[in-house]
Write a protein that binds this DNA or RNA. Sequence first.
DNA 1: CGAACCTTTGAGCGTCCTCAACCTGCGTGG
DNA 2: CCACGCAGGTTGAGGACGCTCAAAGGTTCG
Lengths: 242, 242
Amino acid sequence: MTQLSPLTRKLSAFVALSPADLSTLARFDQRRRTFLCGHQLVHEGQRNASAFVLSDGWVCSYKILPDGERQIVDFQIPGDFLGLRSILFRTSDHTVEAITRIQASEVLAADIFDAFENAPRLATAVLWAASRDEAMVVEHLVNLGRRPADVRMAHFLLELATRLHLVGVGDRTGFTCPLTQYHLADALGLTAVHVNRVLRLLREAGLVTFQKGRVTFNDFNGLVALAGFDTGYLDQDGPLLR
Amino acid sequence: MTQLSPLTRKLSAFVALSPADLSTLARFDQRRRTFLCGHQLVHEGQRNASAFVLSDGWVCSYKILPDGERQIVDFQIPGDFLGLRSILFRTSDHTVEAITRIQASEVLAADIFDAFENAPRLATAVLWAASRDEAMVVEHLVNLGRRPADVRMAHFLLELATRLHLVGVGDRTGFTCPLTQYHLADALGLTAVHVNRVLRLLREAGLVTFQKGRVTFNDFNGLVALAGFDTGYLDQDGPLLR
DNA sequence: CGAACCTTTGAGCGTCCTCAACCTGCGTGG
DNA sequence: CCACGCAGGTTGAGGACGCTCAAAGGTTCG
């Protein structure tokens, strides 16, 4: 099981892939390259940007506002596609940047379209992954629109834990996490100062601890209750197509 | 031009469709039905939900939180797909509800997959439409995360005007709009009371007037400047594939 | 003609922001 | 080896934006 790439592992949780599908999928991950922390794989306004599959490390995608403020739209972890949405756009509407040193493989639009023609099951799985990414953005939007800061933070950490679990990282006790409080602030629509206070509150309430690059769940069920967290939108109750 | 359906009109702005594509596309709009205001075409938790193409009227899609609060994720106008994202999901993660009396046609998953096999150009256009929808959700997220209430409102109204324009409704002077201040509040993450105050501010500043079911732009350029509005993410600079 | 829904306005309050200072750990260079 | 710079984290004080609660007027539709 540890042999499987994170992407294979994730897609297999949704669709049972044939050996042929698996070999087509393996081609997505052929041109694997290493990028340094801070490298921008795609930048806002770039024309004919590529897509990638992330195999190791953490990435974030964000937009910059006219006043220089940043809103992080999503974080990507191993097994996630990068820049898939904009593959049909003339210019990219967002930036994709490595948070850690990462490994990623470029995926050409042709690879995707080829899969649609020759591996419909795999294509379905890719569409499912894209739909799931969008569902996460939607849930993130709900988070920003209607939840107070502490609940927002709780929900965010639980989603991250759930996503990581699906690709075999971390467990109910916690996970290692390279994000800074600035990352959290820019993702959650808060200031870094307020993020710090919220984290203190959650820690003092005995729910989670976010320190020294590690998230520790001190009371997982309590956190789920606070966040009103329901994994439904992640749609990972086991393979749909067998 | 008025003969074209809104969907055809929208997709044609991106891809030049062949007569064969157009006839396949026409099949999406065969089972046209009328639904009353308030009807839920899809509801949260529904299993094996359908997708639709909206040909007339306005629709909103939203999620309800445990405490009963509502977050509207997006509004759909003629030419938009409804529930496309969840077509691969076991259960729908959101509700789709008519705001006015509407006309919409059910699109079966099979229709979509059939298009992928037999009308690759059309399939590309559908994927583009889905990507554009996602880009709008992302911009909405940025709106909630990083913009103050007045700018948020200004940006929202401008996006709506731009989308309507693409399907042939309204112009730079304004458009008719069936939304209530409660709809605006639930979309923008504000309360209806505050929405009312913000609308008054914008009106008194001579920028927009939102009254009696009509949005009137009193100073379009001023509003664009306030919102920092850039249509880039809507990707509608004319056909990409000819 | 009444009821439900929508809009409008006021007063007071709380969450989250701003500004500011200080601390820690770490890498770099003198 | 220490000096320094810098990124990240922590805490306090004060203020603003948007919320809550409340009430009343307008509009639409059965």
